[in-house]
Simulated assay, not measured.
Amino acid sequence: MAGRLLCMRALPVQKTLGRASMSDMRSIIGNREIVGFGFNGQPNYADRVDFPLPAIRWKENTPDIQALREKEKGDWRKLTIEEKKALYRASFCQTFAEMKAPTGEWKSIVGISFVLVAIALWGFYGMKTFVYAPLPESFNEENRRAQLRRIIDLQINPVQGLSSKWDYEKDDWKK
């Protein structure tokens, strides 16, 4: 994860109205070679799958890398696998496989979500226990049955309500 964050960093950009001069850019990017336009036209580096061509190389030019770049101009079959990998790592921080690899970040998101749900449940339980008044007597099963019986006896809403589903001749629910 730390390597991914390191490779995702973008170098600071000049905050001037016009284009920054080459000396200003060099003070920001150091001895890195500018190789393209980049995804936003500024000399910065970011490993992106949607735009795989950063504006500058990943590592600064050193004598070892310069020697490899001169050797690269010749026949590539004469380069060893280690030299090819060193050239790639001098230009790019991560491969596509490394960029697309899962980070495991979902685990922290799920963990934080569970913690927040637990806090909410404890808050609800605390509110129900210490803040809310007890339920009124009308919520008891006996009182609810008595209220239903009164609704049926008074024939409240006999067209579409509960009384329409009651058979008054059989004194039972319609089937």
Rank of each mutant, 00 (worst) to 15 (best):
S113L: 15
Q66C: 10
Y132D: 14
Y125S: 12
A2G: 05
Y45Q: 00
L79E: 00
N61E: 13
W173H: 01
R57E: 07
T129D: 12
A86M: 12
A2K: 10
G30P: 05
E83V: 02
K170R: 12
G111L: 08
E105F: 12
P136C: 09
Y168C: 03
M99Q: 13
G123H: 12
S27R: 13
F37L: 12
K175A: 02
L6Y: 08
R9D: 00
E60Y: 06
I65A: 07
D171G: 10
S163K: 00
S23I: 08
Y45D: 00
G3M: 04
S27H: 12
V115R: 10
E70I: 15
P12H: 02
A120I: 11
M25H: 04
L87Q: 04
E60K: 06
N40A: 07
G161D: 02
A118P: 06
G38D: 02
E142F: 11
E98C: 08
F51P: 01
C93S: 06
G41C: 04
G74R: 03
Y88E: 11
F124M: 13
L87H: 04
C93G: 07
G74I: 03
I56F: 01
F51T: 05
M1C: 07
K175I: 01
G18V: 01
G123A: 15
I65Y: 14
R26W: 04
V110K: 15
K78Y: 03
K71G: 06
E33W: 11
R149Q: 07
G104S: 05
W166G: 01
R26E: 14
V117F: 11
R149A: 04
A118I: 06
R9T: 02
D172F: 00
Y168M: 03
L154Q: 13
A101S: 12
N61W: 08
R145E: 09
G161K: 02
L148A: 06
W122C: 15
N143D: 08
K71Q: 13
G18Y: 03
F37C: 07
M8P: 00
F130C: 11
S91A: 14
M8K: 09
P54D: 00
D75Q: 03
L121A: 15
M22R: 04
L154H: 09
Q66R: 15
S163L: 00
E141G: 04
Q94T: 06
L154N: 13
E98H: 06
E169N: 10
R19C: 00
T95A: 11
F130T: 14
Y132H: 06
M8N: 09
A55R: 00
V115Y: 11
W122H: 14
N31D: 15
A20G: 13
I28T: 09
L6A: 09
Q42N: 08
K175N: 04
R150E: 01
K85Y: 08
R145V: 02
V117H: 10
F130A: 10
F37H: 09
I29F: 11
T129M: 14
Q160S: 14
R9C: 01
D172Y: 00
L5T: 00
I65V: 15
S27Q: 13
R57C: 11
I112V: 14
S163C: 01
P52Y: 08
P52E: 06
N61L: 15
E82H: 10
A118T: 08
L79Y: 01
